[in-house]
Structure formats: C-alpha cells, structure tokens
C-alpha cells in the first residue's frame, strides 16, 4: 500500500473492472441478436426517450412520494414507540410475542390484507410501505434505547437531567447509530414494497411500468425500467449514507479514538 504506483494501479483497477463489465455487455448484446437481451445501446436510447422527462411526473414522482411518505410515517411512529418499549420492561414483555410474530410475516404476504381493507389506491401503498418499514426501525430503537451506557444514564441522574431533556440529549443520541442502521434496512425494504405494490395493484408507477412493458413485450422499455430501479436503489442508498455520515460524525470519531 505504501507504494504510490500500486495505489494508482488499484484505483485504476476499481474503475476499469466495472467499465469492462459494461463494455462486455455492450459488445455482447450488440451481436447477440437475442430477443430478451436487446443491445445495450438500444436500451440506453430507449431510456432517454422513455424517462427524460415524459414519464417522470407520471410514474417516477408518484412512486417516490409514496415511498417517502411510507418511510416517514414508519420512522415517526417507531421511534417514540421503540423508546417506550426500550424503557419499560413490562410493556416490552407484554408486547414481545406479538411483535415477534407480526414482523416474521414476509411483508408481501400482507399485501392482500392491505388491498382488502384499503383498496388499491395510494393509501394502501403508503400503508404497506409504512408497515414494512416499521419493524427494523422499531427493533433497532428498542435495542438502542436499552443499550445506552449505564455510566451515561447515571451521569444524567446525578446532574438531574430528566424527562424530555434526558431523552433528547442523552438517550436518543446514544441510540441514534442503531436507529440509523434500522432506517437503512427500512429504506431498501420501502423500495421493494413500492415496486411490489405497484406491480400487484396499480396503473401507474415504475413497478407497474416494468411489468406492463414485459407483458406487452416492449423489452427495451422493460430493461430501462429495471435500470431505473437499480439506479434509484443506488441513489437512495448513497443519499442515506451521506446523511448518516453527517449526523453520526461524532460516532465515527468516538469509535476511531476508542480503537486506538
């Protein structure tokens, strides 16, 4: 690693390998003449035609709004709930079997229930996204709140930091790294449920578009949808990581100094 030439080579390698993969796909698909795998050049051309910007308002924005709303509701509900469960042994004991069971249900299996009760509109989709996102944040909040360092809590007691102040300044910040871990899991689940709910019950949205393209054998269009979903997944993940780095700057610093 100390050799600068080697470092440059490694960075080149990081760029070169993905580039090679894309190039290979490009060349192979151009000559493959396969119905399922149209040339990459054609997919990209169709991508521009399809998504810039005609369908953005129609399909992309509504999808993302539902995702954001479901995710936000889940976070807003599960952090206070998780705090109560984390602080009270009795409440935790009483609700544990129910939580353990409901969260074990594979999320898509709840979709028929949601359709039955809420119909096929936006409410249903936001509901299902929120329900699914709830568990990772909730469980991580409970763990985070329970795991607050004993000395920190005693410090708060000695200096009479109590009530909401104690939650805001001591308990929540201490639990935040874990809460963020839960939110990260939830965010990828939200995207998955967004797609599934649109595939099963919608006439709009990216999920609907991909499946509809496949059904009408518009294969390049289908591929552009898959690419777009991949891109969204990547961007959501990267965006969240950015926020996390900002908010938990102290956490990385504290951990790095503890490891020394």
């Amino acid at each position: 690693m100390r050799n600068p030439l080697r470092r440059v080579l490694l960075i080149l390698l990081e760029v070169a390998v993905p580039a090679a993969v894309v190039a290979a796909w490009w060349v192979w698909s151009a000559n493959a003449d396969s119905f399922y795998f149209p040339p990459l050049a054609e997919i990209l051309r169709t991508f521009a035609d399809t998504w810039v910007f005609e369908r953005v308002g129609n399909d992309v924005v509504p999808s993302l709004v539902r995702l954001g709303a479901g995710f936000a509701i889940a976070v807003a509900v599960s952090i206070p709930l998780g705090t109560v469960l984390g602080l009270s042994t009795v409440v935790r004991r009483v609700s544990e079997p129910i939580i353990e069971f409901v969260r074990a249900i594979p999320p898509p299996a709840l979709l028929p229930f949601a359709i039955l009760v809420l119909g096929v509109g936006d409410t249903m989709k936001i509901f299902i996204i929120a329900v699914v996102c709830l568990w990772p944040v909730l469980l991580n909040t409970i763990d985070g709140v329970r795991g607050v360092d004993h000395t920190m809590l005693e410090t708060a007691r000695v200096y009479r930091v109590r009530g909401l102040e104690r939650l805001r300044r001591v308990v929540w910040p201490a639990a935040l790294p874990q809460i963020f871990a839960g939110m990260r899991t939830s965010l990828s689940l939200a995207l998955i449920l967004m797609v599934i709910s649109e595939m099963v019950a919608s006439t709009r949205g990216i999920g609907y578009f991909v499946l509809q393209s496949q059904r009408s054998f518009d294969i390049p269009e289908m591929w552009t949808g898959i690419l777009l979903l991949g891109l969204l997944g990547y961007l959501l993940n990267a965006g969240f990581a950015l926020v996390e780095r900002r908010v938990l700057r102290w956490h990385r610093g504290a951990r790095a100094s503890a490891l020394q």
Partner: peptide, 29 residues
C-alpha cells in the same frame, strides 16, 4: 486485496438493486 478492490465498485452498484425489479426479466426467461 486485489480481487476485493477490483469488485468493490461493482458490488456497491449491484447490491442496492431491488431484487423485485428483476421480476419481469424472470418471467420473460
């Protein structure tokens, strides 16, 4: 380390792709 560096970016890109996006492709094939 060499293989890790070579694959890292690729993994970072492929991992967040929601698996359900591949449903149409799966049906097709």
């Amino acid at each position: 380390r060499l293989r890790y560096r070579a694959c890292r970016v690729l993994i970072e890109f492929l991992r967040p792709i929601p698996s359900v996006a591949l449903i149409p492709l799966a049906i097709l094939i």
